[in-house]
């Protein structure tokens, strides 16, 4: 089910690529709960629908460290809209889905082995499903290929987690360059 969803979105991403007008590359700070630091790289395919509106497919690859909780590595695909204003400011919104790989972070994970001895084990958790909702605002500097800066609050869910989904809050801010 999880793999099917990811493949579906990857295919949609490729489809979007075939109609794209611009290819953008971004890099930024990823702060889980704002201050648990990380990095995120974005590859965007942007199709201009009018002078003001563009549709986007974006693939994010990132990592962050929530000390004494977990280290996260994620890849997720997003689809959304960006609305430009004459001043250069823009707003955007996305729905996304991907995979979050997490590692328990601290001074070790211990479990009983088959002989009943407590031993240190791998800190790798599980590959979890990661749906998300992202809003954003930014500014496009002048020039056809001028860079853009963005600020993107994001809510993503980690599931399954204690029979439910665990919501995470994050902010992202960074720069996007137009490649072609």
């Amino acid at each position: 089910m999880r793999s099917t969803a990811i493949v579906f979105f990857m295919l949609a991403f490729v489809w979007q690529a075939s109609a794209q007008k611009k290819l953008n590359l971004g890099i930024g700070y990823f702060g889980q709960t704002f201050t648990h630091p990380g990095l995120v790289a974005n590859l965007e395919l942007e199709k201009q629908q009018s002078t003001k509106v563009a549709t986007l497919g974006r693939l994010d690859l990132g990592t962050y460290l929530h000390q004494r909780n977990h280290l996260g590595v994620f890849v997720d695909a997003h689809f959304g809209l960006r609305r430009y204003r004459k001043s250069g400011f823009f707003t955007e919104q996305y729905l996304g889905i991907g995979t979050l790989l997490s590692f328990y972070e601290g001074d070790g994970v211990f479990a009983k082995d088959e002989n009943g001895k407590l031993r240190r084990i791998s800190s790798f958790a599980n590959p979890d499903l990661m749906p998300s909702v992202t809003l954003g605002a930014g500014y496009k500097f002048k020039g056809e290929q001028g860079p853009m800066i963005y600020f993107r609050p994001k809510v993503y869910w980690q599931l399954p987690y204690n029979n439910l989904a665990l919501p995470h809050l994050a902010v992202q801010t960074g720069v996007v360059w137009n490649l072609r």
Binding site: H36, P37, Q67, R68, G106, V109, T173
Partner: peptide, 28 residues
């Protein structure tokens, strides 16, 4: 952002913080 993220916290430094894994639960 960098200075905010790097600010020290006793919650990250005091004591030892580890986990017990048993029957699917990973308990801090």
């Amino acid at each position: 952002l960098g200075s905010s993220a790097c600010e020290k916290s006793e919650y990250f430094e005091d004591g030892e913080y580890f986990y017990l894994k048993n029957k699917g639960a990973v308990m801090p």
